[in-house]
Simulated scan of single mutants.
Amino acid sequence: MKLAFIGIGNVGFAIANNLQRKGHKIIIAHNDLKNETVQKALQKNTAFTVQKMQEAIHNATVIFLATPFSVSKEILETLHFKGKILVDCTNPVGKGISHGLNSKISGAEKIQEWASDAKVVKAFTIYGFENLINSNFPNYNINPVMMIAGNDLISKKQVSKLCEDLGFQALDTGTLDLALHLEHLTLLWVKMVRRDGHHPNFTWAYLEK
């Protein structure tokens, strides 16, 4: 599958690098082909290609948004998705590691507003990038869970397959408004690790009786 990445920093590269190893074709979507972050990603994985944003969206089956949330509106309102899947990997983090939208609405719902012709699925946000680099926990007989949310069932099934490619158990939590609670789960992880010094190599699991 051809996958385009808008944003190829720590989170974007970790996802893209592992999906490329699983046989997917990765396109970095950036209008400045000589951008420093883009060049670093190309040096680390020479199988990546780079195209201007709209071209990359046109050529990809699924698009990942892995930019800082603060620049998302400016980027998305210039682009056309024509019904394609847009995976929202962003988190609106505010001052003091608070919810950047005051918990009134999820960042994913704002992403959907700014990319109104995309099918937005929230995914790959409840952990730091360390667990996207390596999702393997060999001491356990289950895979870590990756919770997702979105309004389109077919799109979520497609994203779930990509979650599984990365070694996660995909869990569809429901419609896109539930992304607000996933963003709070992210804040819990970030406060534990980035603020309070807990090691980053832990994830959540989904257990059923």
Rank of each mutant, 00 (worst) to 15 (best):
V87P: 02
L76D: 02
L180C: 10
T78V: 10
I6N: 00
D152F: 07
I57T: 05
K157N: 13
I15C: 02
N141K: 15
L42F: 08
V62L: 07
D177R: 12
N201V: 07
V120G: 00
F64L: 15
T46K: 15
V93L: 11
N91E: 08
H80D: 10
K44G: 11
V145C: 12
H99K: 12
E208F: 07
M192E: 03
M192W: 04
I6V: 04
F168P: 02
T173E: 09
A66L: 10
E183M: 10
S106E: 07
A115W: 01
V87S: 02
V50T: 08
T46L: 10
P68D: 13
A123C: 14
G9E: 04
P138Y: 08
L187R: 00
I97W: 13
I75K: 03
S160R: 02
A14S: 09
Y127T: 08
G23A: 07
N102L: 13
T46I: 12
S160V: 07
H30Y: 04
I154E: 15
F81V: 06
A16T: 00
G128L: 08
Q51E: 15
D196H: 11
L42T: 03
H24V: 06
T125C: 08
H99M: 12
L33G: 11
L153W: 11
F5P: 00
C89T: 11
P92V: 07
F64N: 05
T61M: 12
M146L: 14
E183N: 10
T173M: 14
G23K: 05
N102F: 13
S155T: 03
M53C: 12
V193E: 02
K22R: 14
M53E: 11
D165S: 13
Q51T: 05
N10D: 07
A16G: 03
T90L: 04
R194G: 04
C163N: 09
N134Q: 12
S98N: 13
K40Q: 12
A60M: 12
F81C: 04
T186D: 00
R21W: 05
A115R: 02
L101S: 13
L176Y: 05
G107H: 01
L162C: 08
Q20V: 04
S98Y: 09
H199S: 13
K82H: 14
S106W: 03
N35L: 08
V93I: 15
K209I: 11
K25E: 14
N131E: 05
V120M: 03
H184N: 09
D88L: 06
K34R: 15
S106A: 14
L178C: 07
A41D: 06
F124R: 01
D117F: 04
I148D: 01
G94L: 09
K191R: 15
G23F: 04
T186F: 04
T90V: 09
G174R: 09
E109C: 10
I105Y: 04
N143Y: 09
V121C: 03
S103I: 08
P68L: 13
L207R: 05
L79Y: 02
I6T: 00
S160T: 09
E183W: 05
L132T: 01
V93A: 09
H24A: 06
K161H: 14
H199V: 11
A115Y: 02
N139M: 13
T173G: 08
I28A: 02
I126K: 00
V121D: 02
F124H: 01
S72A: 15
I63Y: 05
N31F: 03
K44S: 14
L207Q: 05
F124C: 02
G83Q: 10
N18G: 08
V87I: 14
H198L: 12
T186H: 03
I26S: 00
K2L: 11
K156C: 03
